[in-house]
Design a protein around this nucleic acid. Structure first.
Length: 268
DNA sequence: ATGGTAGACACTCTA
């Protein structure tokens, strides 16, 4: 059976519900993980999701900032909402979902952006980001014959040279500094995660999921970064059949600065 | 080298 998981930093789920509807109607993923919902739980647009067939909803939201939500066509069971760095931020939730012959533990992450100054000594937001990634070392790609793990989200780091429009020009820009990219890749490998978006793609090929709001013309300048990620355990990587970055969503009316990524699996 | 845009919420923060 086919099984698909989408991830999208929506930058206010209430404001952009029309875009979410369009996306779910066009692409119909089994599960959608949202980040930056900016919405307290009691104001989450659950009714709209249910009408679209996404009847199973797990949310971790707060007023004004951050917030993650996972919605699905099939039952999902909350596993954990973890408070990384004990800041009280809503930046993670994990659920369990059955797909074919596997029980999948699905993590939805929103890693701190880290501010502008890439110096943890003078910028507490950057310190927080590094601490958060360090704490993610505890999140492992657990799997056995009947289970697997997936980790998706806005991880706010573009780890590889061709995950940014200009490696050289971004080496001192938060999201692509060596301390971030090195710690990030070490953390991914420590957890035995497979970077599915790079699995069958040449190293030199550019991959972006985010384009700044500040560009005069995001499309022609195309100064993007790969900040959104889809990882899985080794056993699910062998069931992975491909993915899609919905670049066109960046050109929709009043868009998020991130676009959806949809990963597909074929399970027994 | 700089400043550019966007959203929430209530004036300034976060991204």
């Amino acid at each position: 059976m086919s099984f698909s998981i989408a991830t999208w930093n929506i930058n206010s789920v209430r404001l952009r519900m029309p875009l979410v509807e369009r996306f779910l109607l066009e692409k119909a993923p089994d599960v959608l993980c949202l980040q930056e919902t900016k919405c307290p739980d009691d104001q989450f647009p659950s009714t709209a999701f249910r009408k679209l067939g996404y009847q199973h909803i797990v949310i971790s939201g707060q007023k004004g900032y951050h917030g993650v939500a996972t919605v699905a066509r099939r039952p999902i069971e909350l596993v954990e909402k973890r408070d990384f760095c004990t800041m009280g931020d809503c930046r993670h939730l994990s659920v369990r979902v059955t797909a074919g012959d596997k029980k999948v533990l699905l993590h939805n992450f929103y890693v701190p952006a880290g501010g502008d100054e890439p110096d943890p000594g003078i910028n507490p937001k950057f310190r927080h980001k590094l601490d958060f990634v360090a704490e993610m070392n505890a999140i492992r790609a657990d799997h056995d014959a009947t289970s697997g793990s997936v980790l998706v989200g806005d991880l706010n780091i573009a780890p590889l040279e061709h995950d940014v429009w200009s490696h050289k020009q971004l080496l001192k820009v938060v999201s692509h500094t060596p301390v971030e990219t090195e710690n990030f890749e070490a953390m991914r490998k420590a957890g035995d995660w497979v970077d599915l978006m790079r699995l069958n793609v040449p190293y030199e090929q550019k991959i972006y999921t985010w384009w700044s709001y500040r560009a005069q013309d995001w499309e022609s300048s195309d100064r993007g970064r790969r900040l959104d990620h889809v990882w899985s355990s080794q056993n699910l990587a062998s069931s992975f059949t491909g993915y899609e970055i919905l670049r066109e969503a960046r050109g929709w009316d009043r868009p998020s600065d991130h676009v959806p990524v949809i990963a597909r699996f074929d399970l027994e």
